[in-house]
Structure formats: structure tokens, C-alpha cells
Design a protein around this nucleic acid. Structure first.
Lengths: 214, 214
DNA sequence: GAAACCCCGGGCAATATGCCCGCGATTGCC
DNA sequence: GGCAATCGCGGGCATATTGCCCGGGGTTTC
């Protein structure tokens, strides 16, 4: 049996070092190349046609998601495993949607990674347990849809809220009672699944309701 | 000459693997122990009295900052090098203030890390170039000052808050009462001049306490 | 005209908050 | 040593805010 030929992509040298050390112990796995950014990575992929690509999400020179898409576009059958430190399920979803077969967080044990490599090579989907759990908890359909479930008024109030206005301010601006603004605030949080104003704010930013500049 | 005896602290097994692989090539450096959380780390430190500790900031079982403080309290002369993925200069500042001698980001080249290890062992301060630059720029920008008025504990709680934790969650994580977390929350808002959690969250993002994905 | 939405706000109990206090442990400074 | 300052911790308490449900009046749509 020939070893699985692997291309490593990660911008942290220390992490690549870790991969090499770990994978060197596996006779059926062979690291044939490494890359620290997307440009290098894509070039290596085209030249070497590895059996499997392990990549991080955050990479200099463009996101890992883009890299995945480009690779899949070039070789539809490419096996890609994402190994990221992000526990954010949004990344996982997007990575899988972009064409990755697996997504494993860096806090996973080495054995999990090794399993994932072999699973992905065999064409099976892999999702680390922590992410799976978070995803499962997140409502079906995701938040983008939730935003659309807001009524116009609610959306308006959300904007004012995240702009820093108090209920009283909003009451004044919209000529309604502060209690209405408060109720609306509550409904918005419920619809978006935010447990606190902090979560609400982060959501608002992620959903591009609020642009943070300056 | 005897080798520098090093204690590695990082919650990612793959990163520890990387360290070991990298440091094994250096005859003057010897990894004598590893830890994946603060409790383990502190115990190892007490038992082994290593010459140098390399640690991450985000660790399960309490922050790396606390670990640094505890270690310094136990052994004033301990040499501690922080090797973190956070480019946030707030972390660097706080780590140095807590007693670390060096702060290097994980995106640094291995040689930088090796140099840092030897510098810190020799009692010299080390700050990676990228952090130094950001720090310098922020000094000019102001505002960062308010953040610095936060105590270590407050900063820690702020991080947890903006990560979406409730007072009860924080109480559990830090082993304090929810009321204390609540009081701290209040003090943080007052110190930073935030009138609401929404403003607090936006501030946290602007001050790079909280990183939002793009 | 009925059903299904909005938007508006009252009501009320449960919680959280703002704010102040004091305790014990450090730390620093004379 | 001793005194002041600071920090982390949390109790107390009045007040404000919240979660949650309600109903009414106004539309649109079938």
C-alpha cells in the first residue's frame, strides 16, 4: 500500500512542525509539501496533486475558504480537511459548503486528527464533536433567515439599539412609548436567539446590521 | 553546559508536538514537561522548577495570565515566555505586567521563538515585532488608556463577558459568586464609559479585546 | 368578513442593575 | 515595623429592567 500523500497548509510554522512530527509516526501518511499561504498552497496543489489537503482557515493572502473553493474548482474530487482553531460553527459550515470534507478544531486530540485524515481520504465527512454540538444547537436555517423574520419596525429598532440608543431615546425618536421599544427589544432578541445584549450586538455586526469603523 | 530545562504549556496537542519537534533539534534546550491547562501547569512548575516556562494565554481552567501571576508569586525569578496566537497588544501588555519576560506571537518564525527562548532565559525582555508595532501605533491613538485602567481580573471578566458568558457562567468558570461578576461588570462599564452592554461590546471590539470573524 | 399580520403599549412578577459598604490579602512606601 | 493604597471578593438594597402574556386597533389578503 502506498502512503496517503498530504499537502499541509498552515501559516504557523510551529503548527506545521507539529503536523510533521505527528504524521511522521504514521507509516501510511506522507507529507509531500507544505504551504504557509494560499498562493503557495494552490500552486503546490496543482503541481503535486496530493491525495489530501489539510488546511487552516485563517491564512495570509486570502481565506482558507477561498482556497478550498479554488481547489475544488480545479479538481472536483480533491479531499480537503480543515483543521482550524475556530470553534465558530459558521466557519465549519462555510468550509463544508465550500467543499471541504472534514472540519476539526485544533483543540482536538491528535488521534482525532489522524482519524479524520483517514476518514476524509476515504471520502467520509468528518465534523469534530464540539462543532457538531454547537451547530445542532443553532436553529435550523441559521441566523440570516432569522434576521429576515424581523418586522420592519423591529429592524428599525434594532438599528437604533445597536447604534447605542436607550429605550427612552428610541421612544423619543420614533414617537412610541419606551415600553414598546423595550418589548420590541425583547422580541428581537428572541427572534435572533440572543441571550444578552452582548450577543445581540455581535450578531448585529455579523449580520451587517451594524458597521464598526473608526 | 547543561541544557535549559523547559516547561511547555499549551492546550493544543498539535502545538506541543510542534514545540517538541522544534526544540529537540536544539542541544541546549530540553523540554522536561508539558501541560495542557493551568492546574497541571502550576503543579508541574512547583514539582520540577524548570528554568523557563513557555505558555499560551488562552488555556482551559483559567487564563494564562493568572498562571503567570501564580508562578511569579511562587518563584519570583521564574523566566516566562508567552507564545500566543493573539496579536492583541492588550494581552501582551498584561502578560508582561503579570510577570512574563517575553511575548511572541505564534505567527512568528521558529527562529524568532528560539531567539526569544534564549533571550528570556538570559533575563532579557522580548516582544515580537508585530506586537511592538501595533502597540506603538495605538499609543498614538489614545483610548487604549481606558482599557489599561482595568485590573487584571476585570480584563479577564470583560473577555468572558464579550465572549457571551452570563454572570452565572463566569461565576462558575472563575469560581467566584455571580454577584462579584455582576459588580465587576458594572465597574468595567463605568471605567470604560459604556452606558450599556451594547456600547461595551462595541468598545471591546474596537479595542481588540474581542475579535470578530470577517 | 375572517384570518393573519403589524404596531402599540399595559401589567406584573422575577431579575438584574447601580451603587455603596466592609473584609482580608497584597503591595508599596516611609 | 507600620500605614496607605489597591485589589478581589461579595453582601445589601432600592430601583430599573426584563421576560412574558395580554388585548386593542389598524392593514392586508384570501
Amino acid at each position: 500500500m502506498t502512503a496517503i500523500r498530504i499537502l499541509l497548509v498552515d501559516d504557523h510554522a510551529i503548527v506545521r512542525e507539529g503536523y510533521r512530527a505527528l504524521l511522521a509516526k504514521q507509516p501510511d501518511l506522507a507529507v509531500i509539501a507544505e504551504a504557509g499561504n494560499t498562493v503557495q498552497a494552490y500552486r503546490q496543489f496543482k503541481n503535486l496533486q496530493p491525495d489530501l489537503v489539510i488546511t487552516d482557515i485563517s491564512l495570509p493572502g486570502g481565506s482558507g475558504l477561498e482556497l478550498i473553493a479554488r481547489i475544488k474548482q480545479h479538481t472536483e474530487s480533491a479531499a480537503i480537511l480543515v483543521f482550524s482553531m475556530h470553534q465558530n460553527p459558521g466557519f465549519a459550515l462555510r468550509a463544508l459548503r465550500a467543499g471541504a470534507l472534514g472540519y476539526v478544531t485544533k483543540s482536538s486530540e491528535p488521534e482525532v486528527l489522524l482519524h479524520a485524515i483517514r476518514d476524509v481520504y476515504a471520502g467520509r465527512h468528518v465534523l469534530s464533536a464540539d462543532i457538531a454540538q454547537i451547530l445542532a444547537l443553532e436553529k435550523l436555517g441559521g441566523q440570516q433567515l432569522a434576521l429576515e423574520s424581523l418586522t420592519l419596525r423591529e429592524f428599525e429598532i434594532l438599528r437604533l439599539l445597536v447604534a447605542g440608543k436607550s429605550h427612552a431615546d428610541i421612544a423619543g425618536i420614533l414617537n412610541i412609548s419606551a415600553k414598546t421599544a423595550c418589548n420590541c427589544h425583547y422580541l428581537i432578541k428572541r427572534k435572533l436567539g440572543a441571550n444578552s445584549d452582548i450577543e445581540l450586538t455581535k450578531l448585529a455586526i455579523k449580520l451587517h446590521v451594524l458597521e464598526l469603523l473608526a
